[in-house]
């Protein structure tokens, strides 16, 4: 064996494991709501907090969320970014995502922000500052997936 030989050998491997994640009744109710173009937030009477994504329980009071409220289709951005790099198994860039707190809801829910010119990134980012108003836009035929809707700037 030559002392100078670089050690750079690999054994290739891949790992594909199938998963079946149980949806449960809370998420099930939420996804059913999406099919009717309704965004349903779980509500905890013990703390007065309305959660999106819906929770079975309230993290603050640690009591069940046994109510529902319908979120408005308008809200404000709490945080946003524009993704400009390509990641494997993720959408082709550029695209924007934002956490938005919808009307009637206490927490923010992430989704894509569409309909924005992203060619100038800092300029586009300045339109997505916290506090900016956005609206919800549903697909014509929702399927009960979180991607049934997205956000767009309200004005």
């Amino acid at each position: 064996m030559s002392a100078a030989a670089a050690i750079d050998d690999v054994i290739h491997g891949e790992w594909h494991v199938r998963y079946n994640y149980s949806v449960g009744k809370v998420a099930g109710h939420f996804f059913e709501g999406l099919k009717q173009k309704k965004i349903l937030a779980s509500f905890a009477p013990s703390s007065g907090i309305a959660y999106l994504p819906p929770r079975a329980y309230c993290e603050r009071s640690f009591e069940p969320c046994d109510g529902w409220v319908e979120a408005g289709h308008q809200g404000i951005i709490e945080a946003a970014t524009i993704v400009t790099a390509a990641f494997e198994n993720l959408p082709p860039p550029p695209y924007a995502i934002a956490y938005v707190r919808l009307d009637n809801v206490s927490t923010a829910l992430v989704n894509f922000v569409r309909g924005l010119d992203l060619s100038d990134v800092p300029a586009a980012a300045s339109k997505l500052k916290p506090g900016t108003k956005v609206k919800v836009v549903f697909k014509d035929t929702p399927e009960g997936r979180i991607t049934d809707f997205h956000y767009e700037l309200a004005e």
């Binding site: 994640y21 149980s22 809370v26 329980y57 640690f62 069940p64």
Partner: peptide, 26 residues
């Protein structure tokens, strides 16, 4: 256990243990 999200399975069990102990999460 097909009728619960994993999160609900964990919450329900934790909540029941607190009740059994007679203490609050706080």
């Amino acid at each position: 256990i097909g009728d619960k999200r994993l999160e609900e399975l964990v919450f329900d069990t934790t909540h029941a243990a607190l009740a059994d102990a007679g203490v609050k999460r706080a």
